[in-house]
Computed example of a mutant assay.
Amino acid sequence: MIINGDLVTRKSYQHDLMFRVQSVQGSNVKLMGETVRLEADAPFEDLEKVSGVEYERRKKQVDEQEAYSYRLFRQDYRLLKEKRDAEAGSGYTTKKEMNYFQIPPRILHIDGDPLFLKKCIALYEQLGLQVHGQYLHEKEMPEKVMSLIEKVQPEIVVLTGHDSYSKAKGTTRDLEAYRHSRYFVESVRKIRSKYPNFDQLVIFAGACQSHFESLIKAGANFASSPARVNIHAIDPVYVAARVAYTSFMDHINIWEVIRNTISGEAGLGGVETRGLLRIGIPYSTEPEELS
């Protein structure tokens, strides 16, 4: 018996991915990717429950992937920090005298999966970034995204959740052949109608197998999925973090952004964009006066 919350794999896909059972409707089961941002449907007879041993084996693989991606980001962060230190300290005679503060951008992360959102928020915090997270079903995003932006006033907006492409509904060029791409596209268009400057409000949009070209055309700086592949749950965080920790004086190397992600260039792409981090000097160590 398969019920909501069970972990399963699909026999017809050689058990390639692990899914959570989202709902059961008659003989049809709605599935959400456990580690990738893919939404799918499958009949009961195509599903097989994941055993405890198999779950631990798959979890170990995912943990290793995430740890490697995190190490890559930390390496790049150190390089970015060394560059900031050099630029901020150019007017000082000794390194000891050098002291600066930094103003990172505000991030609004809107996610169609509450569990993935929680995981992403934890990673933002681990990376030292402040974020406002909001769960919205993908269909709600076009209607509610602007009110959230007006409330949070972010410099980076992440629109993600679940998506999928169905060959039965059309070719890869047909937007209607995708489960949720049209909602991401409409949301991006609404944002760009009010915030047209790509370097003042940076947008990441998309999920697994999303219509990359439509998202970029609508005005996203970064999007998924060029090769219509699945993307990992935390990949959007690394894209946002790279933008957040790159100086506004510098252009972002798109390849360096993508190399930190688990999905790589098949899953993510983008256009030339400036960073959003600003630094200032000097850093005051004096306590603030009470008013």
Rank of each mutant, 00 (worst) to 15 (best):
N4I: 15
K11G: 03
H15S: 15
D16K: 12
V21T: 08
S27E: 15
E34I: 01
L38G: 01
F44A: 09
D63W: 02
Q65V: 01
Y68W: 06
R74N: 09
Y77H: 10
L79S: 05
L79M: 03
K81Y: 08
R84L: 15
D85C: 06
T93H: 13
E97Q: 14
Q102K: 12
I103E: 09
D113F: 09
P114I: 10
K119L: 06
I121T: 11
Q134V: 15
K139T: 11
E143S: 04
I149E: 02
K151Y: 02
Q153N: 12
I156A: 05
G161A: 12
S164D: 13
S166A: 14
S166Q: 12
D174I: 03
H180L: 04
F184W: 03
V188G: 01
R192T: 00
K194R: 15
K194E: 10
N197H: 09
L201N: 00
V202D: 04
F204K: 00
A205Y: 03
G206S: 06
A207Y: 05
L215Y: 04
G219H: 02
N221C: 00
A223R: 04
S225A: 11
P226W: 12
P226E: 11
I231H: 09
D235K: 05
M249R: 14
E256D: 15
G270N: 05
R278G: 06
R278T: 14
